[in-house]
Amino acid sequence: MTETRILVLIPARMAATRLPGKPLLGIGGLPMIIHVLRRAEEARIGRVAVATDTPEIAAAVKAHGGEAVMTRPEHPSGSDRIYEALRTLDPDGKTEVVVNIQGDLPTIPPADIRAALALLDDPQVDIGTLAAEIRRDEEHTNPSVVKLIGSPVGGQRLRGLYFTRATAPYGDGPRYHHIGLYAYRRQALERFVKLPPSVLEQREKLEQLRALEAGMRIDAAIVNSVPLGVDTPDDLETARRILANS
C-alpha cells in the first residue's frame, strides 16, 4: 500500500474537563499536540493532519509546519471528526486507509503506529488496533483500563472478539490492555460512522463494540507497552519527564 493512499488523522479539541486546554499544554517547549504530530510524521506511513474544531489548535499546528483541518464542534466522537476531515481533505476518495491517533498520546512509538497499519495487509481485517499485556495487578480490575479479548492469530496478533471494562477473560493467562489507536479501511470507517450506537457500545461506553456488533473484523497487534495517555495534571508531569529523557 503506497503512502499516498494513507491518511493519518489526529483529532484534537479543547473541551477536556480534567485537563482543560490540554492539546496546547507545553511539554519540553512544545504543545502536546505537536509531540503527537511528530510521532505520526516519524512513522512515515503517509500524509498527517490534525482534525480540530479549535482555531488556536489549528494555528499552533500550522506554526510548527503541520497540516490542520477544521471540523464541526458537535461531533459525538473522534471517529466522526476524522470522517469529516477525511471527506474535506480527500473529496475524490483516493485515500484507502485512515489511521486515527488520539491527540493525547505524546509518547506513542512510531513503530507501534506502523504495527497497527500492517494488520490491514490481511484483506479480511477491517480495522487494525493495538494491545499490550497487562503487567500491573491493579489494572486487571480497573474499569478505566479497557481489556481486549481476542484469539491469537500469529505470534504478536489477536483477532478481537470483545472489548470490556470488566476483568476478563476469566482464569489463568494474560489479559490485554487495549490501546485506542485505529487503522481503518476507508469503507470500514464510512460504514462505522453511519451505524447507530449499538447496545453493547452504550452499555460498556466503548465505541469499538459497534463495529464488532456489526460483524466487522478488528485485529490487534501486541506491542510492548501502553503509551501514556495524558488526562490529568499528574499525567502531564509524567509526560514531561519521559520526553525530557528521550
Rank of each mutant, 00 (worst) to 15 (best):
V69I: 11
P91V: 00
E42I: 11
L189D: 09
R240N: 02
A239W: 11
L105M: 09
A59M: 02
K194N: 09
G103C: 11
G21V: 02
R186L: 07
T88F: 07
L195Q: 02
G46T: 13
E207W: 06
K205C: 14
A183L: 01
A239R: 04
D53C: 04
P233K: 08
I127Q: 05
V8A: 11
D80K: 06
E133N: 06
D231M: 09
A166N: 13
R217T: 14
R87M: 12
D234Q: 15
R114N: 03
A168T: 00
F192G: 06
Q124P: 04
L228D: 11
P227F: 02
V230P: 12
Q124N: 10
A116D: 07
D137H: 14
P20N: 02
V36H: 09
A111P: 05
P196W: 10
K94Q: 14
D235N: 13
I82H: 00
Y182Q: 10
Q187S: 15
R191K: 13
P106W: 03
G26A: 12
H35G: 06
V230E: 04
I179C: 12
E237Q: 13
R81Q: 14
L236E: 01
A132P: 01
T4E: 15
T54V: 12
D231Q: 11
R87A: 07
P227R: 05
T88W: 01
L119K: 03
E207P: 05
T2D: 15
P23G: 04
K194W: 02
A214Q: 10
L206M: 09
A49I: 11
H177E: 13
E138V: 03
M32G: 05
Y184W: 14
G128T: 01
I57N: 08
F163K: 07
E74D: 15
Q124Y: 11
A214G: 12
G103I: 06
Q208K: 13
I27Q: 06
V153S: 11
P233V: 05
D126F: 04
L30R: 01
K94R: 15
H140Q: 13
I108Y: 03
E213G: 11
L228E: 09
P91F: 02
I6N: 04
A58H: 02
I34S: 00
S246E: 13
K22C: 10
G229K: 08
E96L: 14
I57S: 07
D121M: 11
G160Q: 14
L181I: 15
P55R: 10
R217N: 07
A220N: 03
R47D: 12
V61K: 01
I82C: 00
V223E: 00
R185C: 07
P143G: 03
V97R: 04
